[in-house]
Design a protein around this nucleic acid. Structure first.
Length: 190
DNA sequence: CCCTGATTCGC
DNA sequence: GCGAATCAGG
């Protein structure tokens, strides 16, 4: 696979959107995340900061504008790069960084409701919840079970986090309660 | 362990 | 230019 204009375009778009290198690689196909990262660097957009980070960089530059007077580095102009700092910046704006949207991925979680789920499966779920990894939203990946447990408004909220069934958003136990066939046949043996 | 990006360096 | 291997971290 080569970096055609189209592929590069996709790469740029996704990278700008905050997608991870591996996700981009998967989307493009035929390349690894390393390839993506390499390309990103070659394209010179390694800094994913749209503009939010420019501010940060500027601030950091300000803080670090004290020349340590290194004797081993006789560099004529060690000054801060030409970063424009308009006076628009207020003293302490609320730290409201706009993060890229987390790839929600698949269809989201039908919470267990008073459905007709086999008691067996329900029991299984309860068991699984005890052994769940209890990961946070940030830790969700494409292969972690996205089954939510608890009240999102509470501290007592987490995602299952166990390994998903390939292609499914949930682990096996949760898949079994998430996807109910239209007609549930409940003639199990027990 | 899963993942992230960053860098290096032979091709 | 490319990307696997490696590094450095969460």
């Amino acid at each position: 696979m080569s970096w055609t204009d189209e592929r590069v375009e996709t790469l740029k778009r996704m990278w700008t959107e905050g997608q991870s290198a591996s996700q981009i690689a998967k989307e493009l196909g035929g390349v690894t995340r390393n390839a993506v990262i390499g390309k990103v660097h070659r394209l010179g957009l390694s800094n994913r900061a749209g503009s939010a980070t420019e501010k940060v960089a500027a601030e950091e530059a300000k803080v670090a504008d004290v020349p340590p007077a290194p004797k081993s580095e006789p560099e004529p102009d060690t000054s801060v790069p030409e970063v424009e700092e308009p006076s628009t910046q207020s003293a302490s704006p609320p730290a409201s960084n706009r993060r890229a949207i987390i790839p929600a991925g698949q269809p989201l979680p039908p919470q267990p409701s008073a459905n007709e789920i086999s008691p067996e499966a329900l029991e299984n779920v309860r068991k699984v919840e005890k052994t769940a990894k209890k990961i946070s939203l940030m830790e969700l990946t494409e292969r972690t079970c996205k089954w939510p447990v608890g009240d999102p408004a509470t501290e007592n909220f987490w995602f299952c986090g166990l390994n998903v069934q390939p292609g499914k958003p949930y682990c096996e136990a949760h898949v079994s309660v998430a996807f109910q066939p239209m007609s549930s046949r409940r003639d199990r043996k027990r």
